[in-house]
Amino acid sequence: MGDGSEPKRDCALDVRAMAGFGRKLFDFDWDLTHSRDLERMNDGKIGHPFVFSDALIAWIVLLRTVLKTSYRLMLGIANHFIESSGLRPISLTQLYDRCNSLELDIGSDGRFLAFGRGNARPKPHPITVALDATGVSLNKYGGWLAHKWDRKKVSGWVKLHVAVDVDTDEILAFVVTDEKVGDISCTERLMDLVMAAGHDVGVLLADAGYDSKGNWNRYSRMGIRVCININSTQVSEKHAAKYPSLIRSHGCVVRGNHMRRILEVGRDQWKSENGYNMRWKVECTFSDLKRMLLDILRARTRWNCVRETLNKVLAHNMYKNIRVGMKGA
Rank of each mutant, 00 (worst) to 15 (best):
S85V: 01
D37C: 10
A146N: 05
F21T: 02
P49R: 11
T301K: 14
I106E: 04
W149R: 13
S232C: 02
V154Y: 15
L13V: 06
V15F: 12
K153V: 04
I90W: 01
G223F: 09
G209A: 13
L172V: 05
T128Y: 01
K290P: 04
G76I: 01
I296A: 06
V66F: 10
L92M: 08
V66G: 10
K327M: 13
L310K: 12
E283M: 07
I60C: 02
E264K: 15
V306I: 15
H147M: 10
S101K: 12
A17E: 09
C186P: 02
C305N: 15
I322E: 04
L62W: 03
K153Y: 13
R291W: 05
C186A: 06
P244V: 07
N215D: 07
T128R: 03
A163V: 08
S212I: 02
F50Q: 07
S272C: 07
F26E: 02
A206I: 08
G251N: 06
A19M: 12
A78S: 15
V51A: 06
L294E: 09
I247Y: 08
G251Y: 11
D43C: 06
R189L: 01
A19T: 10
A315C: 12
D268S: 13
T69C: 03
V164F: 01
D211V: 00
S220C: 11
P244G: 10
V201L: 07
I184T: 10
R9P: 00
N317E: 01
G110I: 10
G266P: 12
T168W: 12
V15K: 11
C11G: 00
I224V: 15
I262Y: 00
S70V: 02
R323F: 01
E170V: 06
D37W: 01
I296N: 11
G135M: 00
D37N: 14
V181I: 14
R111A: 11
L246P: 00
Y243A: 08
W270F: 15
F50L: 08
V175N: 04
W157H: 14
L25K: 08
D167L: 01
M259F: 12
K140Q: 14
L310A: 10
R36V: 07
L63F: 07
T134H: 04
L160A: 04
N100Y: 07
D54I: 02
C11M: 13
P126K: 12
L310Q: 05
R72F: 08
G118E: 09
W270K: 03
V176W: 03
E188S: 11
N231L: 10
V66A: 07
L113D: 05
N304S: 13
K180W: 08
V313L: 06
L95F: 07
F286A: 06
D169P: 00
A206K: 01
D150Q: 13
D132F: 00
E103Y: 12
V166R: 06
L160V: 09
G86E: 03
G325L: 15
N217I: 04
R189I: 03
S236A: 13
I228W: 02
W280M: 14
G223V: 05
R261Y: 04
A17D: 03
K281R: 15
N215V: 13
D10L: 04
L62V: 02
R248W: 00
L297K: 04
M326Q: 15
G44F: 07
H239L: 09
W157F: 15
Q269D: 12
C252N: 15
G135R: 05
R255G: 06
